[in-house]
């Protein structure tokens, strides 16, 4: 009897404390897609870190790639009366009803990483995403600057055929090198965003281009394909990073390792920190009532061998990539 009482008492106290702590800070509900890739896992852990920095109470719901789970989670957040809701939407459509419910409850919604199609823009406060076309452009511009007017044949490892990052990163890169007539894409194939396909396709490129001697640079739509291709280049007896320049996108830890070993040259970051800018916009909105722009574009930061890749690798390694 006495024992039960003690437990009851302890629980009550704990609840009281928790309630007190919550009342002081912002509480944000985050409906995350799931953990289908290393980048997604990093996004989740960076969000936690960013929330902690600002003293925000972040509740994360993992939707396991299902929209109905996301809608359920959002309704749950509305019911709990959170201060704001972040959504990384799994699909582009079908959000109007649940977002209207959030709006009626006067809870601002911020989209992370992907945008959606809605009847009205008013249903969400802002969307924080990267610009995938811009990423490709940054990579292209880096190559133009690096080869500095010399003739350069580029082979391209595309992402999954028809996916929007593949289309946009191809488009952006072509824009980036448009001004330089010395740079030409001679071969372009899909590597399905995977390491093994990247390696297999690169093996083919190397054979087809005079054992790789004709290739000046490799542009891969993501780092994973580049990591696979680097192995293929090495097995062909060439030095990646020197004989063939390697530039890719995403900035996952393994590419920094390759850069620190001189085997990759540059990567453009698709930052996993979508939540940071979102928190800042939310704070400004809550404190001053200042509405942010409808689209907050994250920085597409370029990393090269000069940026101490070893240190970045160590930093990124712990993020769950």
């Amino acid at each position: 009897m006495a024992f039960t009482k003690r437990i009851l008492l302890a629980t009550t106290v704990a609840i009281a404390f928790a309630g007190y702590a919550n009342a002081a800070d912002l509480t944000v509900g985050f409906s995350q897609i799931g953990s289908e890739s290393g980048w997604r896992a990093a996004e989740t852990s960076v969000s936690k870190i960013e929330a902690e920095k600002r003293g925000i109470n972040l509740k994360i719901a993992d939707a396991q790639q299902k929209q109905e789970n996301q809608i359920k989670a959002i309704r749950g957040f509305v019911a709990q009366g959170v201060d704001a809701i972040f959504i990384a939407p799994v699909v582009a459509t079908g959000w109007d009803t649940v977002l209207t419910e959030a709006k009626e409850a006067k809870i601002p919604v911020i989209l992370l990483d992907r945008t959606i199609e809605t009847a009205s823009d008013d249903l969400y406060l802002t969307a924080v995403t990267s610009d995938t076309v811009h990423e490709g452009k940054v990579a292209g511009e880096w190559l133009v600057k690096t080869v500095a007017g010399k003739d350069c044949k580029v082979v391209e490892l595309q992402g999954t055929v028809g996916s929007s990052p593949a289309i946009n990163r191809k488009k952006g890169f072509e824009e980036g090198i448009a001004s330089a007539s010395n740079i030409k894409i001679t071969r372009s194939q899909t590597g399905d965003f995977t390491r093994s396909k990247g390696k297999e396709v690169m093996e083919g490129f190397l054979k087809a281009e005079n054992g790789g001697k004709d290739i000046c640079a490799l542009y891969a739509h993501n780092d994973d394909m580049a990591v696979g291709a680097i192995q293929a280049i090495k097995e062909a007896g060439l030095k990646p990073g020197k004989d063939i320049l390697v530039v890719s996108i995403d900035a996952v830890p393994d590419i920094f390792k390759a850069m620190s070993e001189g085997e990759a040259n540059a990567t453009v970051e698709l930052t996993p920190n979508m939540a940071g800018p979102a928190f800042d916009a939310l704070k400004a909105f809550k404190d001053d009532g200042k509405a942010p722009p409808k689209w907050i574009q994250t920085e597409s930061k370029l990393y090269t061998q000069a940026d101490d890749p070893k240190k970045v690798y160590e930093e990124k390694k712990g993020l769950g990539y």
């Binding site: 890739s37 399905d192 995977t194 390491r195 093994s196 390696k199 994973d224 990591v227 393994d254």
Partner: peptide, 16 residues
């Protein structure tokens, strides 16, 4: 073999 080939295990794509 395919894990050894890319020096890594890619649960999402290996053998897909």
């Amino acid at each position: 073999i395919i894990a050894a080939d890319i020096r890594g295990a890619d649960a999402n794509n290996a053998g897909l």
